[in-house]
Every structure is written in structure tokens, then in C-alpha cells.
Amino acid sequence: MSRSDAGASEGATPSQPALESTSPLEWVIAAIGGLLVVGAIAYMVVFAVAELERPPAVTLSVTSVTTTPGGYLVSFRAANAGGATAAALQVSGELRKGGAVVETSAVTIDYLPQQSEREGGLVFTRDPEDLTLSLRVEGYSEP
């Protein structure tokens, strides 16, 4: 790979095709590409420095309760405000009536990346409207 500038004049020989030099348009596109590469690297480095030690921090919020043929579907959104991905995230929901648990349901979310949201649903046989509904995260594993 020690060609250096020796090739610059080779295009002059008539038997060989002229070596193409870079057009202004290509330089513009190359510059955009270069900016993107530098930007992506900088973003990742900054992210690594800023977020490295923060564990996943998951909050759950119920988005809707709908009646389906299979039961009452409680749709929820899980948001991870932490700096690491949670894998195999266990989400469980409980229906209580006056302190006593009458029904539980659970679901696993494969991956919840850092700073991102995923949606899921829990199905109950009893109507959550009449009872107290609570959702919580039981655990996760590191990917």
C-alpha cells in the first residue's frame, strides 16, 4: 500500500484509461458522509462517558383498558430513563379489592433499551374499573 502520488500521472499513457479524479459533487457528498461518521462517533463517545454507570430505570403507565374477547386488556407503556438496556423485563399487574389481591397477570418484555419506550398488555378476567389496578417491574437481566 505504498503507492503515494505515483499514480497521479499514470493516466497520461494512451493505452490505459484516464484515472478519474474526484468531482466537486462527490466531494460534497463525501463531506456529508464524513460529518455523519464524525458525528456518530462523537455521539457514542459522549453517550458512553455520560451514561455508563446508570442502571435501567423503568416507569410503567397504563395507556388504556379495553374489553376484548379474551378478557380485559390493560395496555401499558414502559419507559426506561436509565443508561442501560433491560432485557427480559418482567412486568406484573395486580387487581386488589380492599387490600386483598384478587387477580395477577404478568408479561415479559424482551428488550427495553435505554431512554426508550416499549408497549405491552396485561389481560385480566375481572374488570379493572371496579378494582384497584397496580403495575410493577419485577426484574430484568443484563443483555
Partner: peptide, 26 residues
């Protein structure tokens, strides 16, 4: 240098090709 989009004359043309190709791939 050895393959690429076009027969290139100088190293900086290879660099230009590499950056263009990265943009296209992205």
C-alpha cells in the same frame, strides 16, 4: 485502493470514495 467504485488516482480520492460509500450505506 484495490477495488472500489472507480479507478482512483490519489489517496484523497480513495478517502472521498470511502466517505461517499459510508453515506450511501447509512
Amino acid at each position: 485502493r484495490f477495488g472500489g467504485l472507480r479507478p482512483t488516482a490519489r489517496l484523497r480520492d480513495d478517502v472521498a470514495d470511502a466517505l461517499v460509500v459510508l453515506l450511501v450505506a447509512a
